[in-house]
Amino acid sequence: MSGDAQKSDEEWRAILSPEQFRILREKGTERAGSGKLDKHYSTDGDYHCAACDAPLYKATTKFNSGCGWPAFFEAIPGAVTRHEDRAFGMVRTEITCTACGGHLGHVFKGEGFKNPVDERHCVNSVSLTFKDEKGSEVKG
C-alpha cells in the first residue's frame, strides 16, 4: 500500500460498507453490470476513490466499453498506481489508488478501443464516487 491515507483494517471497516471493504481492501471484484456508475456518463466532474476521496479520473476520460464495469482511458496523472497481478494463473495489470492503496480494478491494452491510448481501465463501480462541478455526488 502507498500514500498518506493509510488505516488499519478495523478503521477501514468502520468507514466502508462490507462490499467496499471486500473490493477496495481485499482486491475483490463486483459482478459485471451491477454498479451504479457503469452506465453513468457526465461531461463535467471527476470520479474519486470511494475510500479516501482522492480524485482518480476526469469524466471526459470515461467511455462505454460494454464490459459491465466503468471504463476509462486515462487516469489523473499520479492518481493511480499500476502493479503486476499474477492471480488466477494469468498476468494482468492491477490498478490501485495512489493515495490509499485501495484496489480499483485492472488495465487492459490493445483491445482496439478508439481512444487516444487504446487502453481500458476497468474499474469496480463500488470503488468510485462521482462528483460533478456543482458538488453533487453519485456513489458507485
Results as ranks from 00 to 15, higher is better:
residue 22 R to K: 15
residue 22 R to E: 11
residue 22 R to L: 14
residue 23 I to H: 01
residue 23 I to K: 04
residue 24 L to W: 03
residue 24 L to S: 06
residue 25 R to A: 00
residue 27 K to C: 12
residue 27 K to D: 09
residue 27 K to A: 15
residue 28 G to S: 08
residue 29 T to I: 12
residue 30 E to N: 11
residue 31 R to H: 13
residue 31 R to N: 13
residue 31 R to G: 07
residue 31 R to I: 13
residue 31 R to C: 10
residue 32 A to V: 12
residue 35 G to Y: 07
residue 36 K to R: 08
residue 36 K to P: 10
residue 36 K to L: 12
residue 37 L to P: 01
residue 37 L to A: 05
residue 37 L to H: 02
residue 37 L to Q: 01
residue 38 D to W: 13
residue 38 D to V: 10
residue 41 Y to R: 07
residue 41 Y to N: 06
residue 41 Y to I: 06
residue 42 S to L: 07
residue 42 S to C: 11
residue 42 S to T: 06
residue 43 T to W: 06
residue 43 T to A: 11
residue 43 T to M: 03
residue 43 T to K: 11
residue 45 G to H: 13
residue 46 D to E: 09
residue 46 D to C: 07
residue 48 H to G: 05
residue 48 H to T: 02
residue 49 C to L: 04
residue 49 C to R: 08
residue 49 C to Y: 00
residue 49 C to S: 09
residue 51 A to S: 13
residue 54 A to P: 01
residue 55 P to Y: 00
residue 55 P to K: 07
residue 56 L to R: 04
residue 57 Y to T: 00
residue 57 Y to L: 06
residue 57 Y to W: 10
residue 58 K to F: 02
residue 59 A to P: 07
residue 62 K to L: 04
residue 62 K to Q: 10
residue 64 N to G: 11
residue 64 N to L: 15
residue 64 N to M: 14
residue 65 S to C: 00
residue 65 S to Q: 07
residue 65 S to M: 01
residue 66 G to V: 01
residue 67 C to W: 01
residue 67 C to S: 14
residue 69 W to G: 05
residue 69 W to L: 08
residue 70 P to G: 15
residue 70 P to S: 11
residue 71 A to P: 09
residue 71 A to H: 01
residue 71 A to S: 15
residue 72 F to E: 02
residue 73 F to Q: 10
residue 73 F to G: 00
residue 74 E to T: 01
residue 78 G to E: 09
residue 78 G to F: 03
residue 79 A to I: 00
residue 79 A to S: 03
residue 79 A to M: 04
residue 80 V to T: 00
residue 80 V to E: 01
residue 80 V to A: 04
residue 80 V to W: 02
residue 81 T to E: 15
residue 82 R to L: 10
residue 83 H to Q: 05
residue 84 E to H: 05
residue 86 R to T: 14
residue 87 A to G: 06
residue 87 A to T: 15
residue 87 A to I: 07
residue 89 G to H: 10
residue 89 G to M: 09
residue 90 M to P: 03
residue 90 M to S: 13
residue 91 V to S: 08
residue 92 R to E: 07
residue 93 T to D: 06
residue 93 T to M: 11
residue 94 E to L: 03
residue 95 I to E: 08
residue 95 I to M: 05
residue 95 I to T: 14
residue 96 T to M: 06
residue 96 T to F: 03
residue 97 C to A: 10
residue 98 T to K: 07
residue 98 T to N: 05
residue 99 A to G: 00
residue 99 A to T: 09
residue 99 A to V: 02
residue 100 C to K: 01
residue 100 C to P: 13
residue 101 G to F: 07
residue 102 G to E: 04
residue 102 G to L: 06
residue 102 G to Q: 13
residue 102 G to V: 09
residue 103 H to S: 05
